[in-house]
């Protein structure tokens, strides 16, 4: 299988603080890499480096074997899109949904001016929103709906790599599930490669093919999903996994847990 993304020895420092320490990571095409870590582990910084929002102090990035330089071309920008955690802040509050989608479509010349309307409606349909949403503003939508719009905008420019930075962490559990389902469907329909960041191991388990674990700016483990969740290599991974509170009904039959720790 071909590699989509290669991160080679990337280091980011803020003053004396090392946010990312010599990160090496590969993501295969059309797979999802789940990136886990606790707060301050550097997982969001890594996402922003890959998205081109932060220029690393050292190291190199390659997308489809082509190096990504500090100043990326329009085509390179288009190929990597990102969705963010906070649905309240992920859309410009003063732009209508029509403006938000049209800007992306026209800037990357995905369609001509005449077809913007039609394509915008198709995009909304893709994320299960109605066409009349076009004339509304972000504050008129719920968190889950806004996240869908953010997904539509990210996908409008036909990226090959989608970075999702805790896209469901601010959402209710039922909404979380529907957004994850949507991402899963879109990923297979559009042949996307995904980098999925979350602190929630349940979410990571639901979406990933491979799991990478970060701690204090370092990558401590990269393993295929099944191996990670049953026999993680790093002691820290084991610590993380055993800290997740389990549902009593999920326990294997027979030994039901006392409902008190």
């Amino acid at each position: 299988m071909d590699l989509s993304l290669q991160v080679n020895n990337v280091t980011v420092r803020y003053g004396g603080f090392t946010a990312l320490d010599n990160i090496r990571l590969e993501v295969q095409q059309h797979t999802t890499l789940g990136l886990v870590g606790e707060s301050g582990s550097g997982k969001s910084t890594l996402a922003r480096v890959i998205a081109g929002l932060i220029i690393p102090d050292q190291g190199q990035l390659l997308l489809d074997a082509e190096p990504l330089t500090g100043k990326r071309t329009r085509e390179q920008r288009k190929k990597i899109q990102m969705i963010f955690q906070n649905p309240d802040a992920s859309l410009n509050p003063k732009h209508s949904i029509r403006q938000i989608l049209a800007e992306a479509l026209l800037f990357h010349k995905i369609v001509g001016r005449a077809e913007v309307e039609k394509r915008s409606r198709q995009l909304l349909e893709r994320v299960s929103l109605e066409g009349k949403a076009l004339d509304k503003y972000p504050h008129e939508f719920s968190g889950g709906q806004r996240q869908r719009i953010a997904i539509a905008r990210a996908l409008s420019v036909e990226p090959s790599l989608l970075i999702a930075d805790e896209p469901t962490s601010a959402l209710d559990v039922s909404v979380q599930l529907s957004v994850l389902e949507l991402l899963g469907t879109l990923k297979s329909e559009l042949n996307l490669t995904m980098l999925f960041i979350s602190h929630d191991l349940g979410v990571i388990h639901a979406v990933s093919d491979k799991v990478a674990v970060m701690r204090q700016g370092k990558l401590v483990e990269v393993s295929p999903k099944d191996r990670f969740f049953s026999r993680p290599e790093a002691a820290y991974s084991r610590e993380l996994l055993s800290a997740v509170p389990q549902m009593p009904t999920m326990k294997t039959s027979g030994g039901l847990h006392e409902p008190r720790t």
């Binding site: 929002l53 288009k78 899109q81 003063k94 953010a150 990210a154």
Partner: peptide
């Protein structure tokens, strides 16, 4: 994050300032 996503789209600084920042 909406500024970050505008930057991820590849919009230039002046364009983000005029189209995104100004109305806000």
């Amino acid at each position: 994050e909406w500024i970050a996503s505008a930057r991820t789209l590849g919009l230039s600084g002046p364009r983000i300032i005029l189209r995104h920042l100004l109305p806000n």
